[in-house]
Amino acid sequence: MKKSTPLALASTGLGIGVLLAVAVPLSASAHVSVTPAATAAGSYTVLTFAVPHGCDGSATTTIAIDIPDEIASVTPTVNPNWDVSKVMTPLATPSTSAHGEAATERVGQVVYTAKTPLADGYRDTFALSLQLPADAAGTTLDFPVLQTCETGSTNWNEVPADGADEDSVEHPAPAITVTEAVATEADGDPVSAADTASSDASGSVADAGSGSGSGDDVLARVLGIGGLVVGAVGVVIAVVATRRARTA
């Protein structure tokens, strides 16, 4: 039987580390996601949905985003590569808008249809402007997304069990956590406690907002570094094996 050389051991260890460092960040970004991950109750926000790949290699043709019942109004951002439409849903109880107008329906779904199918391996984003409900602090709002492709589709609508993270399900629905509104900006918009704390530390609320939804990236980097550490350990083992071979 041919024995592994120290150089082969080193190469194998380093190769495993590199694979882990690359594969982990890729897997962490494989889901349809939404940012920011948390925002203050009652505040106006822009939610950005990211689609990082197709359906098993097939190009994406349509993205349909379901809007939670708690959201009264949505303004989709125009994407030049897609046609956008709003699907209206009747309100169980008619309401009055901030301008005094009677409302009998709301936006139940926003649909983006590709002018040219988005090829697998390419990423695009879709932004929705909306106001979060003032009484939703401490809750999670799910935004199921149906991704239709030239061949097949993927329904990102699974909700993890209480206490579990999104990796516990195969196709997690994009979701945001609504935080407490503890202060107001000059224009009267609520600011969450997390944003306030970050603003105090950095001297800028804008700087605090730029870090929203980065938890997955941080985890991916940590695990990726762990992969490189595994590779380094492989190199150390190879060096030790070489020294033992020489002394023998």
Rank of each mutant, 00 (worst) to 15 (best):
W82V: 12
A134Q: 12
I63D: 03
S43W: 03
G15F: 12
V111W: 06
N155W: 12
S4W: 13
V239D: 06
G188D: 04
A64W: 00
V230D: 09
V229Y: 03
S212N: 08
F143D: 07
P36I: 08
T184I: 12
G17C: 10
G108F: 02
G203L: 01
S27K: 15
G188R: 05
N155E: 10
D83N: 04
V178W: 07
L132I: 09
I65F: 00
F143P: 04
D195Q: 02
S210A: 07
V239W: 08
T247F: 14
L130E: 06
L128T: 08
G42E: 04
Y122S: 11
E101P: 14
D216K: 11
T148D: 09
T116A: 11
S129D: 15
A64S: 01
L146A: 13
I67Q: 00
T5R: 07
A72W: 15
A206R: 12
E158W: 06
W156C: 07
V107P: 07
R221C: 14
A41D: 02
D187W: 04
A28F: 14
V182E: 01
V74F: 10
K115F: 05
A194H: 10
N79L: 00
S198T: 10
T96F: 15
P174I: 03
V230I: 14
T242H: 12
L20E: 10
E70C: 06
V205C: 02
V51M: 07
S202V: 04
D135A: 15
T93F: 14
G209N: 07
K2C: 13
L223M: 12
I16D: 15
S212Y: 07
T148H: 08
D200R: 11
D216F: 09
P174S: 06
F143T: 06
A208F: 05
I71M: 04
T113Q: 09
G15T: 12
D187N: 03
V235K: 15
T35S: 15
R246P: 12
L9C: 10
V87M: 14
C55N: 03
T242C: 14
H53C: 05
S33M: 08
S210D: 06
I63N: 03
V229F: 04
D66S: 01
E70I: 10
T242N: 15
A201P: 09
P52F: 01
G211T: 13
P160H: 01
A164E: 09
A248M: 07
T12D: 13
D56M: 10
A38M: 11
P144M: 13
E180R: 11
T60Q: 03
G121T: 00
C55S: 05
R123M: 13
A248L: 06
L130G: 03
D200I: 08
V218Q: 14
A206W: 11
N157I: 00
V233S: 13
A238L: 08
T39F: 13
M1C: 14
A137R: 02
Y44A: 09
A193I: 03
